[in-house]
Nucleic acid binder design. Sequence first.
DNA 1: CATGAATGAGGTTTCATTCAT
DNA 2: GATGAATGAAACCTCATTCAT
Lengths: 216, 216, 216, 216
Amino acid sequence: MTSSKDSTAALPRSRDADRSQLAILAAAREEFSEHGFAGGRVDRIAERADMNKRLIYYYFGNKDDLFLAVLEGTYADIRTAEQKLRLTEIDPVEAIRQLVSFTWHYHVDHPEFISLLSSENLQRAEHLKRSSRIREMNSPLVQLLDTVLERGRRDGLFRAGIDPVQLYVSIASLCYFYLSNNHTLSTIFGRNLRAPKAMAQRLSHMIDMVLGYVMH
Amino acid sequence: MTSSKDSTAALPRSRDADRSQLAILAAAREEFSEHGFAGGRVDRIAERADMNKRLIYYYFGNKDDLFLAVLEGTYADIRTAEQKLRLTEIDPVEAIRQLVSFTWHYHVDHPEFISLLSSENLQRAEHLKRSSRIREMNSPLVQLLDTVLERGRRDGLFRAGIDPVQLYVSIASLCYFYLSNNHTLSTIFGRNLRAPKAMAQRLSHMIDMVLGYVMH
Amino acid sequence: MTSSKDSTAALPRSRDADRSQLAILAAAREEFSEHGFAGGRVDRIAERADMNKRLIYYYFGNKDDLFLAVLEGTYADIRTAEQKLRLTEIDPVEAIRQLVSFTWHYHVDHPEFISLLSSENLQRAEHLKRSSRIREMNSPLVQLLDTVLERGRRDGLFRAGIDPVQLYVSIASLCYFYLSNNHTLSTIFGRNLRAPKAMAQRLSHMIDMVLGYVMH
Amino acid sequence: MTSSKDSTAALPRSRDADRSQLAILAAAREEFSEHGFAGGRVDRIAERADMNKRLIYYYFGNKDDLFLAVLEGTYADIRTAEQKLRLTEIDPVEAIRQLVSFTWHYHVDHPEFISLLSSENLQRAEHLKRSSRIREMNSPLVQLLDTVLERGRRDGLFRAGIDPVQLYVSIASLCYFYLSNNHTLSTIFGRNLRAPKAMAQRLSHMIDMVLGYVMH
DNA sequence: CATGAATGAGGTTTCATTCAT
DNA sequence: GATGAATGAAACCTCATTCAT
């Protein structure tokens, strides 16, 4: 009897259905983020979402497809964030600084991005390979970085011959690894790499490193 | 005199404790490397080692302890390889080059090191934290790198104020991430990052990057 | 209207949570009663209940908790039976007679009560200690016995200074031990202590003994 | 080379063999006492005895036969202790007192006797039934008790018509049950029945009860 | 749309026992 | 006599998934 059921004819689905799906996705993202794909439990996802387990299968088919949907959402999120960067409107050195800083903070703020990717790579990206959606979501950053590098070179600030793809991967490497492998590194080094001071030093070092490399 | 060791034909079982343990460890390393800890199966490890499953528990107690034993062996291996580096006997620039190259090739040649670490980090290093053995196996590289950086600075080649720990982590980052996330990156970029040419370019880029950073 | 409940022929499964749980509990009581906790098999419980083994874990968590649930049910049963005794309405001598008789017959009719308790004590009551439910189910008999003893004393029939707890335990001892250790006793004595005549003599002896003690 | 091996020719077995068997038996008695037959572990027995597991099978065949050997030893021990009682040399009332006291203290001092019997009864005395040795070890106590009762009756102290078997079983009941079911009773009553004071009160009550019954 | 009940397959682990020396 | 290595069977338990309503 709730009027949400008789929504406008144009809408293919009810609001409830959408809300349920979003709740499941959010719960699954948490679960897979904390335990990886193999360690994630459908039961716990249902609990987290406060939904019946059957609904998960109704909406997402199976665990693999649910994981893929989570991955797609995660990639969509980072692409959205990347779109907001305005690197072409500032000077090249500051643009590099901001790019590194953005990448760092995005990873810091989205630990699920890291753990989902780590888990997916442990399984040879077998979910991702099946997704045309994700492949179509190209990151604007490589193109953006190319523009920045070119401008810096024209200004006589940056060296020539830098491959923007390599640099993009390297910036991601520097941010990702420190955070993804934080637990083993902290244990091996015997100190907490996530302490605020250590985090600030890391960002500073990464900026120094990237700028040291691109500048003459 | 024990000629029974020579015959390899139809021995019912080796009845050699050390060899059995090594066979189990090797099989477990493969299995956990391919599937991670959560996805690894004790049954398959027994099959791979051609051993009775019970023997795994006889020697290693349980799956967690077996995984830890694998981790310990893996760390022991890399430490052994690191000991062989002779960076103090060559000039600083070449030393950096060799350090990056060594790190790269070690990761390339030991994909299990990457996947085991990734899996372990997905579980917050809960196995590693229980191991005193691993924490005692300090890498000589940080100290070595410090020496190299100092020499380069004295020669007027390198800049001052570089933190060897940060640089060590960064070199590892550059190598590790490219390989650990190869599957998603290759899928997203739509090209094979493990192609020989791409691999060579990556090494070259990393050396450029590190040298570009440390040198004036 | 739900005629599906009526048909008993070829129902695939009952799909009645309560009934399933009761069936599992009943089967578990039998199994644990016959083999004790350590010797009881979850597989056989599932067979006895004609249920999927998984359902046992679904409803009861694990073997220990299932055993505890069985224990709790068993204690609930004896408490219910004890409530029905009306010892305060009859004369003290007859009340003692009935109390012994009740205790005896309850043990005879509920061999599972004996074997479950024996098994639980073999494990130092480690299940029972975790149950707040059972500890809250106080037996009314100690209080009842106290009242009876007091009335008997006032009537000049019973001696003074009898501890109702000790007497309660003693009555239980006399009944329990004869039945719990029937197998070894019968073997040692070389005669069947469960023969009807022997059983009758036992009850008679116990009543004589308790009355002989409480009366002047 | 240890000369213990070349023992005198008359001995069928070496001292070592005897010592090994006794060590195994002692370890098995402890293990089965603590965990019952089903819960007892052959591995732990070997550990406790500091013997190779294979030896257990060499000497005792299998777990069942080992348990039976333990049972036989346990019965032999109590029979030996019973032989030492000198009840016919003292007055009947004191004899009853001492019999109850002996039974109580034997059970208190030999908790393994209780737990082994409880476990054996849980399995319907299936080990015991196979042992002719135990059945031949008759307790002298029934005969002794009969003599005491008869003397007491002749002295005009005891009532007539008391069945010594029933009384013997009852005395055992009173002692055994309190101790065998100590854990559940203590939990249910919410107090420690093994506290020294409670133990003394129990013995006192049992003596009162038995004397109260047998005396006019 | 939604749900609690149910399940087969397979996971880790344990056990008494035997093998090879 | 004595031993460490090895094993098949079976134990407890978990998982993703489907059923019946």
